[in-house]
Computed example of a mutant assay.
Amino acid sequence: MATRQRRKPARARDTALTPELIIDAALRIADTEADLDRLTVRRLADQLGIGTMTLYGYFRGKDEILDGMADRVLGRMRLPSTPDAGPAEALRTVAYAFLTMMREHPSIVRLLGSRVTDSQTALRGAMEAVLQRLVDAGLPGPVAVRCYGFLITYAIGFASYQAPRPWGRRDSDTSAEQRRQRRHFYAGLPIDEFPRIVCLAEDVVEMAGDEQFAAGVEAFIQSTLRGQD
């Protein structure tokens, strides 16, 4: 008679399980995946070395885990403590804070693009504090709201575009070589079919560059403050 195979026990944990540790693990998985569908309760439980039913004792399902991830990242959004010198500096501060947050946690781009959070923790960290920063710098409330809307959506779009184009990052040791290779690709296209791309290869490769983000922010600042004169 065939013997029944014994189920392997879950890996022993070195530390006590907490909701914070679960969210940390969820973020690690989500930040390395291009699709939030790959973050499943079973996969998260396996990562933590526990059973899925144990995980359900902390979160009722994936939606609560996603909300917890949003709470963690948005609620802890960092703004420099140094006061801004004026509206222009405040807008730069907010723009780069959004971009930094999305680079550190690529999953937040997908979360913001797929769900709405009503969490007071998230709203306090990534909306209330940001709006207060802009108002404190001298922007009228309604203008601050419009600026917030532009900057967060601009950062989401740019971070999404740059993520699969690592040659655009200036903080990477390999970005220069990646830019060179991509420039070579554009310049090597059939010139009769792609005359503009070939001739502008040097510039086209910079569309994913950090300078492109900076140029967009500065253009927005100039347009906004000109309208306040």
Rank of each mutant, 00 (worst) to 15 (best):
L74E: 03
L74C: 04
G75T: 08
R76C: 03
R78G: 01
L79D: 08
P80M: 02
S81Y: 10
S81W: 09
P83F: 10
P83G: 12
P83M: 10
P83S: 09
D84H: 08
G86C: 06
G86S: 09
P87S: 09
A88E: 15
L91V: 12
L91C: 06
R92E: 15
R92W: 09
R92F: 10
R92L: 12
V94Q: 05
V94G: 05
V94F: 06
A95S: 05
A95M: 01
A97F: 08
F98I: 09
T100I: 05
M102P: 02
M102D: 08
R103Y: 13
H105D: 11
H105N: 15
P106A: 10
P106R: 09
S107N: 07
S107T: 10
S107Q: 09
S107G: 09
I108D: 01
I108T: 14
V109Q: 07
V109W: 01
V109E: 13
R110W: 06
R110H: 11
L111W: 10
L111D: 12
L112P: 02
L112G: 09
G113C: 03
G113L: 04
G113H: 06
S114P: 12
S114G: 15
S114W: 11
T117W: 08
D118A: 13
D118M: 13
S119N: 13
Q120G: 05
Q120P: 02
T121G: 05
A122I: 07
R124S: 11
G125C: 05
G125R: 04
G125N: 05
A126G: 09
M127N: 03
M127S: 02
E128A: 11
E128G: 01
A129F: 00
A129K: 05
V130N: 00
Q132P: 00
R133Y: 06
R133L: 02
R133W: 03
L134R: 03
V135F: 05
V135Y: 02
V135K: 00
D136E: 09
A137T: 14
G138M: 02
G138F: 00
G138K: 01
G138C: 01
L139K: 03
L139N: 02
L139M: 05
G141C: 04
P142W: 07
P142V: 04
V143L: 01
A144P: 00
V145M: 01
V145Y: 01
V145S: 00
R146I: 00
C147E: 04
Y148K: 03
G149F: 06
G149I: 03
G149H: 12
F150C: 01
L151R: 03
L151T: 06
I152T: 14
T153F: 00
Y154E: 11
A155L: 03
A155Y: 04
I156H: 08
F158A: 06
F158N: 07
A159Y: 07
Q162Y: 14
Q162G: 11
Q162P: 12
Q162F: 10
A163Q: 15
P164H: 11
P164R: 07
P164Y: 10
R165D: 04
R165N: 13
P166C: 07
P166V: 10
P166L: 09
P166E: 15
W167P: 02
G168S: 14
R169L: 10
D171G: 11
D171N: 13
D171R: 14
D171E: 14
D171A: 12
S172Q: 14
D173G: 11
T174E: 13
